[in-house]
Design a protein around this nucleic acid. Sequence first.
DNA 1: GCTAGGAATGTTTGCGTTCACATTATCGTG
DNA 2: CACGATAATGTGAACGCAAACATTCCTAGC
Lengths: 339, 339
Amino acid sequence: MPRRHNQKSAPSQVDVARAAGVSTQTVSRVISGQSNVRPETARRVLAAVEELGYRVHAAAASLASGRTRILGVIVVSTARYSTSAITVGIEAVATEEGYSVTTASVADHATRDSFFDAFDRLERQGAEGVILLAPFSFLDPGMDTRIERTPTVLMHRLTGGVGTESVVDQSAIARLATEHLLSLGHRTVWHVSGDDYWLESRVRRETWEQVLIEHGVTPPPVIPADWTPESGYRAGRTIAAIPDATAVFVASDEMAFGVIRALHEAGRTVPDDVSVVSVDDIALAAYAAPALTTVRQPFEAVGRAAASRIIDMIEEREPTPVEPIHPELIVRASTAPPA
Amino acid sequence: MPRRHNQKSAPSQVDVARAAGVSTQTVSRVISGQSNVRPETARRVLAAVEELGYRVHAAAASLASGRTRILGVIVVSTARYSTSAITVGIEAVATEEGYSVTTASVADHATRDSFFDAFDRLERQGAEGVILLAPFSFLDPGMDTRIERTPTVLMHRLTGGVGTESVVDQSAIARLATEHLLSLGHRTVWHVSGDDYWLESRVRRETWEQVLIEHGVTPPPVIPADWTPESGYRAGRTIAAIPDATAVFVASDEMAFGVIRALHEAGRTVPDDVSVVSVDDIALAAYAAPALTTVRQPFEAVGRAAASRIIDMIEEREPTPVEPIHPELIVRASTAPPA
DNA sequence: GCTAGGAATGTTTGCGTTCACATTATCGTG
DNA sequence: CACGATAATGTGAACGCAAACATTCCTAGC
């Protein structure tokens, strides 16, 4: 049985109290920055803390106080850009607010039960709130009971959430992209979708369909893909085989790279023969050939918003109004009017 | 003061014990899977656990046992591919081994003190081991005392680590890349470096220099950049202005995208006029135009190795021999013999 | 000088577990 | 059938801290 690695167990409040000639309670007060302590006393305590190298024992503190200040994040284990960018935002806010973040990851394409497991792991760890960075719906049965216990925020637009609310408007993204292509004069817009395992993939597809219908055009069949550039490449070959396809809405920048390569290999140039608009605006989007027209998602802001929202819920304070985070169309060189 | 959100506080071992008609100790034994329990008793306990929805209270358990099974990871808050890919590996092993992962992030270009802060936050949280996913050297003074207390693993090759060892051989990467270009017949190799804040950036540069010298060529001046495609683009313009530059070793794929775009804009084609080799093999590398010749770093494996190493250290077991993780040169279309 | 009242500090208790040890049940053996 | 050995279970204490309440100190006002 491995035990603590610090040979002589770490100094405790008692040690500090003794060294400073006060009670542990006073030490506790100084540490947690309470007011009713004489400056001189506080100085003595702080000095003792410094000298002994005392650190609060988080487990003990949270056992006593009932608070852990732990934020849980459930992520699907993928090195997708969006996920890690969002995490950066979450982490930043958490640290600012004195929370720590623990992650529970779940295999890609994991089942509902894996999510429950992840959620349970976080709860066991004492997470006071959970951010679901995952293709998951609150409407799922087993989820309700968990959400009741632990405040939860979801990254996806979803109606009917149980008093919880999401931060990104996925359907605005699809609308922006599709209407851009339409307004350029394209008759119709094809769509390379992301993996349907992901909620946003479905939302984008549905919105794309709806926008087309609003404009009186019958949506062509979806070309399914799975977020990877490879799958984009395959989809691109399919599109290249469709002579009258002049505009494609690709659900992610990464896939767009694949689509464009397939198109070029088939002798169709972008944007002269085919316009491509995608989603995310990853750092490389501007360095594709041609540079990608894309709908930017402000991922870090999304992460920040999610984190402050969940902290608001935890601390039961009025939710700081999240100024709406707008996706933004960045027009570059991969779209043009039809020939 | 917000308290627990579960209105009626969660069931404890006592509740389970009462429901199952046993002592709390027995409940504890069943939960932690010890052997000395009659199957029938275990079943009763498990039933009670199930019915009450009991979950171990991690804070209480770790206070009593002295163990937290928490792994700390210090990351620089960047959405760089490498970082998130490594994290995936860490997370996977941690979960397998029953550890949870908490992250402390640090601003890009943060000072040494920010790292100490992050380390301290993790220690306070009870991290039993820390993985440093950061441009940091063990040789730093303040670090020694921390490492003594808490087992630490660094992602970077470094001689003189305090009994700790790293997992990737950054210098092998640079050697692979530079020698590939040389063996193609290029007279010399230019280098676009990453941000010198990062250790691997420096190691790659030094190795590149050394390899050139070994081959009897005087290294040209380094072209400094900072990992971003934009900086790669700027570096690319510099290179385009050097008529006899025929080969470039770029320290990351992302920068290579920028370099290539600048080169093309200046009328120099890749690989006919200039060969480009980079590092990482991100998903998009194969979809650059031309497809990138690059040195693959098996990031997830690196993460897995780091995690199992740190767990070995925590549990004071013989370190599972990490089969050496070799970087691998992937030859695609961005390199060719000089014209 | 005495008292009220607030600021500063101390004491006690309990958070939910696990540990170390004590006790009781169960079984095979001579 | 009693005995010891081993398996199964129980008991008390302790982990390090913060909450609640209790006490002491100081100051100001009359």
